[in-house]
Amino acid sequence: MKLGILCLLVLAAGCSKSNQTWEDVKTAGNYMQRGVDSLWGKDYESKMLASEAEFIGPYSDEFIPLSAADLKASFGTDMALPQPKGIPGQDGMPELSSFYAPANALKSLFQAVHFETDDFIVRGREEMHALAQIASYMKKHPNVYVVVRGHCDERASASYNMSLGLRRANYIRTLLVKNGVDLNRIYTVSRGKEEPLAEGHGPDDWKVNRRAEFKIYER
C-alpha cells in the first residue's frame, strides 16, 4: 500500500516529463509507420516538389495575373491556389446551391472552424486536427465535393466582411489542399456577415459567427 502511494507520487512529480516522452515516442512511431508504408508504395503528402507551380499546377489563362515578380515577393507562407477546373452548373458539376449540410455521421466530422477577430488563420490545435481529419476523409472518398463558406461577425462593415469571409474560406481550402486533398474538389463562398448563427450582439455571439462552414456534395 505504502509503496503504491510512493509510486503515484513519483509519477505525479515526473508527470510533464513522462508525457513529453510518450508524445515523442508516438511521433517517432508515426514516422516509422510512414516509412514502412512508403516501402509498400502508400503515398502520403511527402512528395518532392521542385517548385510551387508543380504543387498548385499552372494558373488558368482566364485572367491576366500579376507579374511573377510581384507575386513571388513574399507569398511563400501564404500560398494562393487557382480555383477548381470544374465550373459549377457545367459539365455535370452541380450548382453550389445544391450542396447540402453534412448529415448524421458526417455532421461531427465537417464541423465549423472558428477564427479570431479580423483574422483568417486557424490557430487552435484541435481545429487543425479536425481539418486534417476532413482532409483524410476526402482523400478516401474521391466522389465528395466540398464548398467552404466563410462567415464574419457583425462588427466590421458589410462590404469589408464580404472580402474577409472570402479570405477565410480560401485559407481553409489551402489548408485542406496542403493536407493532400485535390484542389479541384473544394469551392469557396463568402457570406460576409449576412448569415449570423447567433443573433445576439455580445463577444460570445461574435465568436460563434466568425466561422467557416462546410457543405458537401457526393457525386
Partner: peptide
C-alpha cells in the same frame, strides 16, 4: 471587382 480567382480576395 474583388475575386478569389487566384486564391485570395484580390482586386481585378
Amino acid at each position: 471587382f474583388i475575386s478569389d480567382a487566384a486564391g485570395r480576395p484580390d482586386l481585378f
